[in-house]
Design a protein around this nucleic acid. Structure first.
Lengths: 186, 186
DNA sequence: ATTTTATATATCGAACTGATACTATGCATC
DNA sequence: GATGCATAGTATCAGTTCGATATATAAAAT
């Protein structure tokens, strides 16, 4: 039974709750904004995570009845939860993984028509723009409340996205026939 | 029944087989070297993927008996497989996801002792060095055989890792008390 | 009037991860 | 001469996560 060392969805939820009590819905919003560029999670992960944390006494659940709507379940971290979190943070080698269908696709660019390649690259740049904007917006709205770690993480995201954008812009010509014929004729 | 559009393990295996017939074991080596920095996959994904591709006629399996050892199963892509792959490559918006326990940990750096933070950052830099070396080595050994797409992807990996390294080195001081006290006293 | 957006919880199949199991040879180390 | 490790090879499985979907209500927009 491995109970420490992994920063899984459960542990990240626990961490988020150190900033104050919140519902699953609230946590989802963090996963969609601040955490979106490096740790996405959906309801299918968040709700079971909160249930499991509750069972194990890491959090307490406060059910707030609402008329018509289902109860709002607000979770509070417990002392046990804090201890567990600190233990999880002790892992000296947390991973950083990339799963890129984009790069997998580009590996087979020689099987694709140029127009298709261009579309894929354009969509990647759009994605970069989206994340850059999103990070800047969350920074603008809550930077002052953030501990240094979150600032570091936001800056990290912006730096990586900027690097991606630059690389794609500067090297996309390598992928198309256009450049192949140019280098052949020129 | 969604049969196209996703670059999952099955489709990537199929793509790898366009470079020539191979066994599951052979494919694993590609996942561990060339693809390691952006699309990891283990036997638990590869073998079921090949079985499923075989059932659907995307690949043919050639069983080569070996004395003592289990049969070596070499997979060849079929015409149907090629068609399927081209269809999968048509997705104009393939994703690029990051899953970082490292960044999740750094979000809670204010709950960690400085020495622990330093260890995490050092291990990240080691990881950067490992991947940079690995990509350079595979580039050195098989760059000449590669289509432009794979060169682009290798360069992409190196650029991103370099950006990560630079960012960590230049901003790690933001995470420790040391800098906090320095800015308070200085 | 109807669609969209927001609040809010929850489930489920499909996919994937990481570890492990099994067989066999060869090489080094103790 | 035995133990351990690397390489070659196939395969499974529990646990985790992903993406989509279902349920319910209400305000706001079209």
């Amino acid at each position: 039974m491995e109970t420490s060392g992994t920063m899984d969805v459960r542990t990240v939820c626990l961490g988020m709750l150190t900033d104050g009590a919140a519902s699953g819905y609230d946590l989802k919003k963090h996963f969609e904004s601040t955490f979106a560029h490096f740790f996405a999670a959906g309801y299918g992960s968040i709700y079971p995570a909160l249930s499991s944390l509750c069972e194990q006494g890491m959090v307490n659940c406060e059910c707030i009845p609402q008329d018509g709507k289902p109860d709002r379940k607000v979770y509070h971290i417990t002392a046990e939860g804090r201890t567990f979190l600190l233990k999880a943070l002790e892992n000296p080698t947390p991973c950083h993984k990339v799963r890129s269908e984009f790069l997998a696709t580009m590996c087979f660019a020689h099987l694709m028509p140029d127009a298709q390649i261009e579309k894929v690259l354009d969509s990647r740049l759009e994605d970069c723009a989206y994340y850059t904007k999103m990070i800047s917006e969350v920074e603008a709205s809550c930077m002052q409340d953030w501990p240094p770690g979150k600032r570091f993480v936001a800056g990290f995201g912006k730096a990586m996205i900027e690097a991606m954008k630059t690389y794609v812009e500067e090297n996309r010509h390598l992928l198309t026939e256009e450049s192949a014929s140019k280098s052949a004729t020129g």
